[in-house]
Simulated scan of single mutants.
Amino acid sequence: MTVGTRSTRLVIIRGDAASGKTTTALALRPELGAKVAVIHQDYVRRELLSNPDSRERSRDASVVIVATARQALELGYDVVLDGIFNLRDYSAPFERLHQEHIGSTAICQFDLGIAETLRRHAARPLGQVISEGKIREWHDGWQPLPWFDERRIGADAATADIVAMILSDLSVQRTP
């Protein structure tokens, strides 16, 4: 099975909480053109799905996110996915999506370290809602995908530079 067209682009932006994923996704959107779907894991997990079992909700979110991305690619949209996207629930579905997507794919992961993650989290509105302890509990650090040579984004990378790197990666397929 194939998905999308030769001209559709799939971007997956991964990383820990408060790392800059959504900021990057929103900055990338106008650079990709007029027909872009940005799919936020936070929205799917917090707003769309309601389930007190967080592990089950995470697995369900991976199904919803990949199905939505697949449909948007089929409709001719470029797709930007942003979220923590742990390996347990997302690696295999993302691998299938990447393998079946006939357009180009770019994947990057923010790796800021726990101190920078906590500093950034404290400065945003959710910093007042989600505790430092919860952020520490969720922090996974660098977890590279085993099937794709994703870009590692450090704490000193500027959003404009990350967007330029993603656009460059979309022109050359990166595989391990």
Rank of each mutant, 00 (worst) to 15 (best):
M1I: 12
T2C: 07
T5F: 08
R6H: 14
S7M: 11
T8E: 07
L10H: 04
V11S: 12
V11L: 12
G15H: 06
S19V: 02
G20F: 09
G20S: 03
T24E: 01
A27L: 05
R29A: 15
A34W: 03
K35Q: 11
I39F: 02
S50P: 00
P52H: 03
D53L: 03
D53G: 02
S54G: 04
R55E: 12
R57E: 11
D60S: 15
A61K: 01
V64I: 14
V64F: 00
V64N: 02
V66W: 01
V66Q: 00
V66E: 03
R70G: 07
Y77I: 01
D78N: 13
L81P: 05
L81V: 09
F85Y: 14
F94W: 03
L97S: 04
E100M: 09
H101A: 11
I102P: 06
S104V: 06
T105H: 10
A106E: 08
I107M: 08
I107V: 12
Q109R: 12
Q109E: 11
D111T: 09
G113D: 10
L118Y: 03
R119P: 00
H121N: 04
P125T: 09
G127S: 01
I130E: 01
E132M: 04
E132A: 14
G133N: 11
K134G: 00
K134M: 15
W138G: 00
W138Q: 06
H139K: 08
D140I: 06
W142M: 09
Q143P: 05
Q143E: 14
P144W: 15
L145R: 13
P146F: 11
W147Y: 10
F148R: 13
R151V: 11
I153H: 13
G154Q: 12
G154P: 05
A155Y: 13
D156V: 07
I162S: 02
V163A: 09
A164S: 07
M165L: 06
I166Q: 06
I166T: 02
L167G: 06
S168Y: 14
D169R: 04
V172W: 11
V172E: 10
Q173E: 13
Q173V: 08
Q173T: 15
P176G: 07
